[in-house]
Structures are given as structure tokens and as C-alpha cells.
Amino acid sequence: MTRLPILKLALASLAAGTVISVLMLQIDWFGDAAATAAGPIDLLMDVTIVVSSYIFALVCVALGYALIKWRVQPGDEGDGLPIHGNTKLEVIWTVIPIIIVVALAGYSWAVLDDIENEDADRITVNVYSQQFAWTFGYPESGNKWSEGELHVPLDRQVDFQLHAQDVIHSFWVPEWRIKKDNVPGITTDAIVTPDEAGTYQLICTELCGAGHSTMRATVVVEPEAEYQKWVNGLSQNVPESLLLTADQALEIEKQIQEKEDGIEGTGVDET
């Protein structure tokens, strides 16, 4: 039995992994970024892409080497070597992947804490969704209301309170990297700190019926002063019908929170 050229295979995998990583990182995976969450998430993705590239390269090199080296000669009816396994090798390829995924999971957890960190001076915006339109309420500016167009101040954390009137919708601005479902019956929230002024698109990403693909809204990120001016210029207040369901939702939300606190705090479900 010939010895495996371990060093050469390892070097080939490293080289191939490096080439694949470089090629993969050339692809502009995410497009534009316009919120503080984008930096850490994009970096996490890039790190994962590099790690994955090396794993993919290792598999390709091993498979390619085996095919070149042990492809059978025509007419050879013999069998391969009766190797049933190798405990050391099997332990290695169990333990190393565990280390890799636990490390990536820990890193992801850190990023998650980072992007969901709440600022003290955040403002709240209500996002109402129904088939197939978005409307927005600004509770800190006298509950003013806008339809189909969302304005938020630049460099200020926004806590979006998400409501749904009929079916599930989902709030996503790709440039912000943040998404959360609007769920009828409860209020969910999404935390975003826009850090790039401009006009973006809010996209519904949860199938909500025939008009799903057209359920969009315009998002304008502008400096604080312009934002205030725009909000003050709004004439309508949030309609009663929306507020009612939103209040009901808050009540349910409170109950859920209590239940959750019960589970987290005492280990006992109080219900």
C-alpha cells in the first residue's frame, strides 16, 4: 500500500481553497449596505464563505485525487484494499467539524447580540401591514401617519413595531440586512440604525396573497432635521381602526412577555 502524499494533498487543498475564497469574495454578495447591522453581518458572511471555500476545496481535492489515482484500468476485475476504517481519522473528522461549527455559532451569537443591541435614544415607528400595502405611524410625532412611504432619520436607532391586520407579512429592506415578520395578533419588532442617507425599497417577503410581489413601499433615510420637517408636514393621524388592533396586539404581546419571563426567570411556566 502506497503512502498518501498527505503534505501535497494538504497544500493542494489550501491552494485551491485560497483561489476559491478569492473568487467567491469577488462576488458582490450583498449589494449596497445602509445600516449599522450590515457591517458585522457582511463580515460574518465573508468569514463563513472563506471557511466554506476551504472545506469545499478539501472535498474536491480528495475526490479528484482519488479519481486520478485509483480509477481502474480497463479489464481490471480486482477489488480495492479491504480497509474498514481508521479510528484516528474518524475522530479527527468528527471533532474538527464540531470545533468549526461551534466557533461559527459563537461568532453568530456575538453578531446577533451586537445587531440587536438597543440604544437609549432610539425612536419608535409603527409599521402596519395589510394585503397589499404598508403604512407607517410615528408615535413620537403625535401619531402622524404616512401611506406607502417611510421616512427615518439618519444615524438614529429606530425600533420598528410591526403589526399585521390580516395575514403574515414580512418587513425587509435589503440594504439594512434586517427582516422580521409582521404577525397578526401580536406585535413584533425590528431594530435598525440606518447609516446611509438615500431612498430604498421596503419589500414584503412573506407570501401574503395575489398581490405579494407588488407589496412594496419607499423608504427615505434623511438627516434628522429634514425628517422632523417631513413628519411635521404630515396631515393625517393613524386611523382608529389600526390603533385598535394594535392595542389588542400589545395586550397579547404583554401576556406572551409575561409567559416568557416566567419561563426565563423561574423555570416555571406560570400559565
Binding site: 453581518i41 458572511m45 463563513t48 451569537w109 446577533l112 427582516k179
Partner: peptide, 16 residues
């Protein structure tokens, strides 16, 4: 699949 398991990446690419 592993990428999708990582919550911050999944938040962005869910339902895309």
C-alpha cells in the same frame, strides 16, 4: 444550510 443556520445571515436571506 450551515449559513442559513447562522441567525444573522438567516435574518437577511430568509424568504429570498
Amino acid at each position: 444550510g450551515v449559513m442559513l443556520g447562522m441567525i444573522p445571515i438567516d435574518i437577511h436571506v430568509s424568504d429570498t
